[in-house]
Design a protein around this nucleic acid. Structure first.
Lengths: 143, 143
DNA sequence: TAGCTAAATGCAACTAAGTTGCAAGTATTT
DNA sequence: AAATACTTGCAACTTAGTTGCATTTAGCTA
């Protein structure tokens, strides 16, 4: 990991009053570096030998979510991805795109969607998630 | 289960050329009866003593999906729901609403959403899923 | 800078969802 | 009614995620 990223991660951690531990710096630095959602397993693999325990990664991510640094994107096939929070409001975040060929997930930051309307009285829609599937530029057969 | 439902289930099964077995009639009949998405576990519980084996339920649902009778709604927290296919197109299905209080999931049949637009060239969006969370009429605190 | 303490880590064991292999049973076809 | 290909159920397994607990450590204070 680059020193600049490490520094940025440390800064972010103290800005949200989280203790600056090795696992946290490593995980947050990685998320900053890749700038796309990752599963716990992907995080673990990418950190390689120095990867913290699986449990620690989950708890680390949990603390980031509580601090508002990161949010979870629940995608298909019981895979969770984590990413830095950016343009997310209370009601909705950007759509997530998963490539059906390579499996990579991308954030469609800046793409806005209208909120769904309830089909009948009584429903209160608190949050909306939009998930997309298809081919990413890398796997697009027409490119 | 009502006899009418059982008959309808049997009819559906032969219309898609699936063998008419007890587990299939039971599961399909239940899905027809409740008219909302259910997890494998919910199906098992509702069928009670006569419930087929967990594996059989999964394989039964899989055969229904292949036959186009049923589709999967991937929701949060690695819970899958199954429901009868109705207004679903290649590109998208109706939004799914999950109540954060009671956990029940409802299909917002008839609610249409515009397809997301790719933020950059190269992405091919094949499918879009919209998931909603909030309070259902039963749990709405303002009602 | 040493010491204190609450917070964080790592290990082991567990739960829950879902899958695979295989032997035994059964719905259709002839 | 027999043959056979499709289905079922059991057991064992995999994967994602959680819990409890003993040990370690970040950051505060003297």
């Amino acid at each position: 990991m680059g020193t600049a990223l490490k520094r940025k991660a440390k800064k972010l951690l103290s800005s949200v009053k989280l203790r600056r531990t090795n696992p946290r710096v490593a995980v947050l630095g990685l998320l900053l570096a890749v700038d796309k959602p990752l599963t716990q397993d992907q995080i673990s693999t990418r950190l390689g030998r120095n990867a913290p325990d699986k449990v620690t990664i989950y708890r680390t991510l949990e603390s980031f979510v509580r601090a508002g640094l990161v949010h979870r994107a629940f995608l298909q096939e019981r895979v969770w991805h984590f990413e830095l929070a950016d343009d997310c409001t209370e009601q909705q975040c950007h759509p997530h795109f998963t490539c059906t060929s390579c499996g990579d997930t991308h954030c469609f930051t800046g793409v806005t969607m209208p909120m769904a309307r309830s089909p009948e009285k009584g429903f209160v829609i608190g949050h909306q998630r939009v998930q997309l599937e298809g081919f990413c530029p890398k796997c697009n057969p027409n490119l």
